[in-house]
Design a protein around this nucleic acid. Structure first.
Length: 220
DNA sequence: GCCCAGGGCACTG
DNA sequence: CAGTGCCATGGG
C-alpha cells in the first residue's frame, strides 16, 4: 500500500503545525460544563455523532440548541423526549437517525465513567458508531492512542503520495509511523482537516499551499 | 439549481 | 471484502 515511513509523516506534521499552529481539538464549551456541572467529554461524543458527514457549522447550531435545553450531556439527552431531541438537532442533518443513535448511546452508557474501560471493538458494536466516530471517542474523549482517519486524511494521502488503502490500513500507517503521543495524534488529525478545508479540497486549491513542495499532485 | 460537508447502516455481488 | 442507495440540513 505504501512506501513511506516515519520521516515523511513527521515531516508533514511539522509543516502543517508550523503553518496553522496548534488547533486544540476537540472544541468544547468548558464554561457551560462548569456552570451545569456536566462532563465536557460527553459533549465531545455527542458532537462526534452529530458531525457524521455534516459540516461543523451545522453541528454548532445543534449544540447551541442542546445547551439552551440544558441537554448537552448523557443525562440531558436521556431525559428529553425523542421528538424534542430531533427538533433540537435538526440542523445537523440525518437528524432522525442521529437522534436515535444518541438516545441509544446514553441508554447503554449512562455517564462517561461507563466508557472508562471500553474497547474499540465494543464501541464498534454500538449502532451509529462506525470506525471514525469510535476513534474520535477514543482519542478526544478518552485520551487513548487511536488515530482518527477521515475522508480528508484519505484524500490527502492520495494527493501527496498516491497512497490508497482501507480505513484500517491508513490508520495503521499513521500509528506505526508516529510517536505514541496523544498531543501529536490529536493535533495531526485536526491539522489535516483544517488543511483540507482550506487547500486540499475536493477541487484542490494549490495556490499558496503550504505543503506544495512535498506534494506529488502539485508537481504533476 | 447544483455541490458539498469532520459517516454509518443495510443490502448486494 | 468492495460497491451502492439511503439518510437531510444549510452555506457557498
Amino acid at each position: 500500500m505504501s512506501g513511506i515511513g516515519e520521516g515523511e509523516l513527521i515531516n508533514l506534521y511539522k509543516k502543517l503545525f508550523e503553518f496553522y499552529g496548534k488547533q486544540n481539538w476537540w472544541p468544547v464549551d468548558y464554561e457551560y460544563h462548569t456552570l451545569y456541572k456536566t462532563d465536557p467529554r460527553e459533549e465531545i461524543i455527542i458532537g462526534a455523532i452529530l458531525t457524521q458527514n455534516i459540516s461543523w457549522r451545522n453541528v454548532e447550531k445543534a449544540l447551541e440548541n442542546l445547551k439552551k435545553a440544558k441537554a448537552l450531556s448523557f443525562e440531558g439527552i436521556g431525559k428529553i423526549p425523542l421528538d424534542k431531541l430531533k427538533e433540537l438537532i435538526k440542523s445537523s442533518g440525518f437528524y432522525k437517525q442521529k437522534a436515535v443513535y444518541l438516545k441509544n448511546f446514553v441508554e447503554i452508557f449512562r455517564s462517561i465513567d461507563d466508557l472508562k474501560n471500553i474497547s474499540r471493538e465494543e464501541l464498534l458494536k454500538v449502532k451509529g458508531i462506525g470506525r471514525e466516530t469510535a476513534d474520535v471517542i477514543l482519542l478526544y474523549a478518552l485520551d487513548r492512542l487511536s488515530f482518527v482517519v477521515d475522508t480528508y486524511t484519505k484524500r490527502l494521502l492520495i494527493r501527496l503520495w498516491n497512497i490508497e488503502g482501507s480505513y484500517e490500513e491508513i490508520k495503521k500507517l499513521f500509528e506505526e509511523n508516529l510517536p505514541k503521543d496523544l498531543e501529536i495524534y490529536k493535533e495531526f488529525h485536526a491539522l489535516i482537516d483544517v488543511h483540507c478545508k482550506k487547500f486540499c479540497r475536493k477541487k484542490p486549491v494549490c495556490k499558496d499551499c503550504p505543503i506544495a513542495d512535498i506534494c506529488s499532485f502539485y508537481s504533476r
